[in-house]
Design a protein around this nucleic acid. Structure first.
Length: 811
DNA sequence: TTTAGCATGCGAGAT
DNA sequence: GCATGCTAAA
């Protein structure tokens, strides 16, 4: 059934056909300047190779040189190399750099792309083997959730208690683990009110009738095709002579299985990654995949890239010191030929605002060149936070002082409401059967077609077995809908039909005869058509009439969207592209400070990096530790490692003694990771004005002194009966607000965090939100509390404060 | 059908 | 502190 031969991908690249000897003799400029480890990783072509590439060790360089080597020596033609990345950005960069190395643009390399893009290509080709048509649509998260909402309601489940989002994430989790509905383990049977597995099965059935797939399916369907069609799999195995995988530490089970299926046989698979930078466990990534590589691929050759070209010695040593606390690493020692540079700087602040103010001042000072260093411009500086809400304090401050900044991450272009709405219009025009898109636009802008009218349409469509658009037509024609709604709906349907007829190309593809009937002059370019759709639908007007402050920006985005159409031939092509792609980075002239999350920073580098908010509970994140315990803590630690290693010359870590958390003031204690920073690579800064009035004791005033005298303090804290006194945490908390300068407290909390159960059954407690209550159960850090007013709740211990029997409260 | 007003919940986010 | 999502009123 395979369509190997008519495939563009398989034909494209036989361009050059020199003999192998001739190829081997060609010069290899891509080897120039590579260190021995890199050369090894580049030249060892056959058999499994694990390239363990530490931060800043020239991983991409080695990877692209390896591709160049495969091509230059004639080991493989461009279309015989399977090179997978996680992001489109990474794929683009790799493509560009290979082209650069080869001194020509790479014709072919059709199999360089993201897991998902490659799977789409494979699945379009073999869709019928899993009961799909090759023009299946790809649902994004939003569509997914909407579909699940319907299923949940249909099953009579209270959607309030069991939100569709949660089901979506459960099902995603299963798909990440390559679990089809029939393979859900007993341990997961209780998920989602015991209905998870059944709903999953229904969801899959529904997708099939919709001729749709979600992201997870892209992988799973291809795996299924491979597993059930030996000969086909065999053909692909032979075709993909060499496999390269970037960021292997981020692969999930499904991706691992997919790779293993393809690599079996020749085993020419080269995986590149860094176990110390595995920070996507919550997204299904399995560090285990990289840790197990040598077992999975016997005879694997492991190359360690350890020479770092990015950071100074102090920065590398500090990062190494932190990551060394993790267990079960493959182990690497980063080193540099460069200088030691500045030590990592550590500073504590009174609160988050103070921290932001100080960072702002530092950035301004860096612009002029401080500490005998060259000036660093704003675009050489990044602030990396654990959680995006931390950004607000910095944004506020930067706006106040007029410091230009940009935020990376946040709602992406194609996820914005207006863009999604506009694209739903396009989708309805392009594919009349796209019910999800129709649902989205039928009453946007408002047309007086609310829930009731939509239910009528749904019902008509379902009973007649037609799409929603058809159902709507029936509703209008049969008079099932009346009044204003019906009139508007009729007008909408007429417009959709007209837009469709104006669409160039698509008509020809479906039915040649119709072309005669239609004046070619009616057909517009897809760009003009898009404009017409947005105008005539009333969507543009909708935002023009909107008085909210976001409206102008949304109109801008719509213009941007139309502009983006220029690089595509038609709407279909554009929609296809968008369903797989997200980023829309627009570069501008002014140098700006970058504000982003630690996760978003992986792979990037900056001369100067600020790492604020190193406080226990925030970083490492309490939630992460509650959910996955040590595993979670280790992932947080890797995040710390990623953060520090982003810095080239200057790395500044900070924490605040007090922070507003969900609108409430909380005292914070320095992150345990601060204790793990090796003292000899750290310089402790004294915040201006904070300790001025406290004579003497400069050392104990320093926020970091705890880390140098850890054991003393440990004993001291233990003697102070930390573990048993229910009031101790409260005391710490209160003193923290006013006296975070005392190191014993800073250290105290670290110990305290291990002694999770400060409370025991029967204790009286106070919670900022729920008020007074008594502990009724203790389970690790999670406490069951019967609140006097708020009823029984499960809360995390740190949000509780001991109240003595009299009910006297500390605030 | 639309809207205003209160309850609820909160981490990172590619494809 | 803020965004989201539902109930109650217009």
């Amino acid at each position: 059934m395979s369509s190997f031969d008519d495939s563009e991908a398989f034909e494209a690249a036989s361009a050059v056909s020199l003999s192998a000897q001739a190829m081997a003799a060609r010069p290899k400029p891509y080897l120039d300047g590579l260190n021995p480890a890199q050369r090894d990783a580049v030249q060892r072509l056959d058999g499994p190779v694990l390239m363990l590439a530490g931060a800043g060790t020239g991983k991409t360089r080695a990877l692209t040189a390896r591709i160049a080597h495969l091509l230059t020596t004639g080991a493989a033609r461009p279309n015989e190399i399977l090179a997978v990345t996680f992001t489109n950005k990474a794929a683009r960069e790799m493509r560009g750099r290979v082209a650069q190395l080869m001194g020509q643009s790479i014709e072919g390399m059709p199999w360089l792309g993201t897991f998902h893009a490659i799977c789409v290509k494979l699945l379009r080709r073999h869709a019928e083997l899993v009961g799909l048509k090759s023009n299946f649509t790809i649902l994004d998260t939003d569509d997914q959730v909407r579909l699940m909402k319907q299923l949940i309601n249909a099953a009579g489940i209270d959607e309030k208690r069991w939100p569709a989002r949660q089901l979506a994430s459960i099902i995603d989790g299963w798909k990440n683990r390559a679990l089809t509905p029939d393979k859900i383990p007993a341990a997961d049977a209780g998920a989602f009110n015991r209905q998870g597995p059944a709903l999953y099965a229904e969801y899959q059935a529904r997708l099939k009738t919709l001729n749709a797939v979600d992201f997870g399916d892209l992988l799973l369907h291809v795996i299924e095709i491979f597993q059930k069609n030996d000969d086909l799999l065999e053909q692909y195995r032979r075709w993909f002579r060499y496999i390269l995988v970037d960021e292997y530490q981020d692969t999930n089970v499904a991706q691992y299985l997919w790779l293993r299926l393809l690599a079996q046989g020749h085993m020419n698979i080269c995986c590149v990654g860094d176990d110390d930078q595995s920070i996507y466990g919550w997204r299904g990534a399995e560090v285990g995949n990289i840790l197990r590589f040598e077992k999975d691929f016997p005879g694997a050759h492991v190359v360690r890239l350890e020479q770092n070209y990015r950071s100074t010695g102090h920065i590398l040593s500090a990062a190494s010191g932190v990551i060394a606390a993790n267990k079960g690493r493959l182990g690497k020692t980063l080193w540099t030929e460069g200088e030691d540079g500045e030590k990592v700087r550590l500073i504590g602040h009174w609160d988050g605002e103070e921290e932001a103010r100080w960072v702002g001042e530092e950035i301004e000072a860096m612009g002029h060149g401080t500490r005998g260093m060259d000036p660093i411009r704003p675009d050489g500086i990044a602030i990396l936070v654990r959680a995006s809400h931390q950004m607000r304090a910095f944004e506020d401050r930067f706006l106040t002082i007029g410091l230009p900044y940009r935020v990376i991450g946040g709602p992406r272009f194609y996820e914005r409401m207006e863009i999604r709405d506009a694209m739903a219009y396009f989708r309805v025009v392009v594919s009349p059967e796209d019910d999800l898109a129709f649902e989205r636009i039928v009453n946007t802008p408002k047309r007086g077609l609310g829930d009731k009218a939509q239910a009528t349409i749904q019902k008509l469509a379902r009973t007649n077995g037609v799409s929603l658009v058809e159902g709507a037509r029936l509703a209008v024609d049969s008079g099932a809908l009346g009044g204003k709604g019906a009139k508007e709906l009729r007008a909408l349907l007429e417009r959709v039909a007209r837009w469709r007829s104006m669409m160039a190309g698509a008509v020809a593809a479906t039915s040649d005869d119709l072309i005669e009937d239609m004046g070619a002059g009616d057909r517009l370019s897809h760009i003009e058509l898009a404009e017409v759709i947005l105008d005539e639908s009333g969507y543009t007007a909708h935002w023009q009439n909107d008085k909210t402050p976001e409206a102008p920006g949304r109109l801008e985005n719509l213009k941007e969207l139309v502009k983006a159409l220029e690089s595509f031939e038609n709407l279909q092509g554009f929609l296809e592209h968008v369903s797989l792609i997200m980023d829309n980075e627009q570069e501008d002239s002014e140098p700006k400070v970058t504000l982003m999350t630690l996760h978003a920073a992986k792979g990037l580098e900056f001369p100067a990096v600020f790492l604020p908010g190193w406080e226990d509970g925030l970083f490492p994140s309490q939630r992460s530790m509650d959910e996955t315990g040590l595993k979670g803590l280790e992932e947080e630690r890797r995040l710390a490692y990623v953060g520090i290693t982003r810095a080239e010359r200057l790395c500044t870590i900070s924490f605040a003694g007090n922070r507003r958390v969900y609108g409430q003031w909380q005292s914070q204690l320095p992150s345990r990771f601060i204790d793990e920073l090796p003292a000899e690579h750290v310089e402790v800064l004294t915040p201006p004005g904070l300790y001025g009035h406290q004579g003497g004791m400069a050392a104990s005033a320093s926020p970091v002194s705890g880390m140098m005298r850890g054991s003393d303090l440990h004993e001291q804290a233990a003697r102070a009966d930390v573990y048993n006194s229910p009031g101790w945490r409260r005391l710490q908390a209160n003193q923290g607000r006013f006296g975070m300068r005392q190191p014993s407290e800073a250290k105290g909390i670290t110990i305290d965090a291990e002694a999770v159960s400060v409370f025991s059954e029967g204790d009286r407690v106070f919670h900022q939100k729920f008020g007074y209550g008594s502990i009724i159960s203790v389970e690790g850090d999670k406490l069951g509390v019967r609140f006097d007013k708020a009823g029984e709740k499960h809360v995390v211990g740190r949000f509780l404060v001991a109240a003595d029997a009299a009910g006297d409260v500390p605030f």
